[in-house]
Computed example of a mutant assay.
Amino acid sequence: MKPSTVLLSLPWAISVGASPTGQPHAPPKFQWTDLPAVGNGAAIQEHGTTATNTHIYLLGGISPNANASIPAIQSRDTFEAYSLEEGTWETLTPIPEAFTHINAAAVNDKIYLLGGLTGNGSDMVWRSSRDCFVYDIVERTWTALPPMPEGQGRGASAVGILGNTVYLAGGLDRLEIGGDQLTLDIVSAYDTEKGTWTTLPSIPAPRDHVGGAVIGQKFYVVGGRDHGQVNVRNTTWSLDLSAPSKGWVAHAEMPTARGGLAVGVIGDYIATFGGEGNPAPGSNGVYNETEVYSVKDDVWFKQPAMRHPRHGTAAASVNGRIYIPGGGIVMGSGPVDTFDSFELSP
């Protein structure tokens, strides 16, 4: 399928805030590109997403036939890769355990699965797992890793990578379909070289289904929700990873509070897409917002709506583009095979 690209110049974009000099910010330009359907047509949602310089990787998720009236809590063990050069999908060796809401990261040609949620469909509950694994891209094999620390198993965390270390902030310990959701404020770091876990200062408040990004030495945590799908938040926090003992710093708030959003990085911008918890009539509970944060100026730009609104996905940033595979189109579920990318121009 030939990618479809739409380039938009944004004279109408809203600048939320101003520069330190008081001068208005000129909104950037961007383009959306439609890409070949995920897994050659297999819908996916609540999966883990990560990337190398050559491939986008998708791990686990929920049943592709899920819908809002029949919640699918059966976890999946699927593992797929999209070649950025060839524009094609490949099915890889399944992950060792079936998970949803996977915390995924790519470091030094290896794919890390660091906890997630599991469910077998018997009691309508997803539960956290401390289990961790690594996939060797060259050898095409999975290996078990040291589990997450006792009491820190979770899925739906903000994920950041700096050097050889993967950072996880917040997350979900338990999700009961139509019931309780246990949101966490824990922050952990996994050193992929040493194979060790470290606990860092907690985020200021619990968050799950939350966005994460690292720019420079700072780990940013954006949006998310707190004990429930409708309890969405618009906070923006950062932790200086060179001096984590100084704790978290609050920044300009995202214009639209959202959980289950996708987050990616292009240069000094953090871009956020979609999400869940929209109360507006006709929205199916899904946000279509695209909002971009400038870390240099501490300002948000509110952009025109997503072409394909969805929630329950995760983005991956590669070479100046943000890739957004799958997601859901109704509150709670509605998996689709939509796959597109977002690109900012200076």
Results as ranks from 00 to 15, higher is better:
W12S: 14
W12V: 10
G17E: 11
P20D: 06
Q23N: 14
D34A: 15
L35G: 02
N40A: 13
G41H: 08
Q45K: 03
Q45M: 15
E46C: 11
E46A: 13
H47T: 10
G48L: 00
T50H: 04
I56V: 15
N65P: 01
N67S: 14
A68H: 06
A68D: 03
I70Y: 13
P71H: 06
R76T: 15
F79W: 00
Y82N: 01
L84W: 08
E90R: 13
T93L: 15
I95V: 12
I102R: 02
A104N: 01
A105P: 02
G116Y: 05
L117R: 06
W126D: 07
W126R: 10
R130E: 12
D131Y: 11
V134Q: 04
I137T: 15
R140N: 14
T141A: 13
T141C: 11
W142Y: 10
P147S: 13
P147T: 12
P149K: 11
A156Q: 02
A158F: 00
V166R: 01
G170A: 04
G171M: 04
D173E: 15
R174S: 13
L175V: 03
E176Q: 13
D180H: 10
L184N: 07
Y190Q: 02
D191W: 08
T192C: 08
T192A: 09
K194G: 11
G195C: 13
T196E: 15
W197S: 10
L200Y: 12
P204A: 10
G211R: 04
V214H: 01
Q217V: 06
V222M: 07
V222P: 07
G224Y: 04
G224K: 00
R225K: 08
R225I: 06
R225Y: 07
H227K: 11
Q229T: 14
N231C: 08
N231Y: 07
V232I: 08
R233V: 14
R233S: 01
R233K: 14
M254D: 03
G259A: 07
G260V: 09
G260Y: 03
V265S: 02
I266V: 14
I266P: 00
G274L: 07
G277M: 05
G277E: 00
G277N: 03
A280K: 11
S283E: 03
G285A: 12
G285Q: 05
G285N: 04
V286T: 07
S294F: 10
S294R: 05
D298M: 07
K302Q: 13
P304G: 14
P309Q: 06
T313W: 04
V318Q: 00
R321G: 06
R321F: 11
M331C: 09
M331V: 10
G332W: 02
T338L: 04
F339R: 03
D340C: 10
F342K: 02
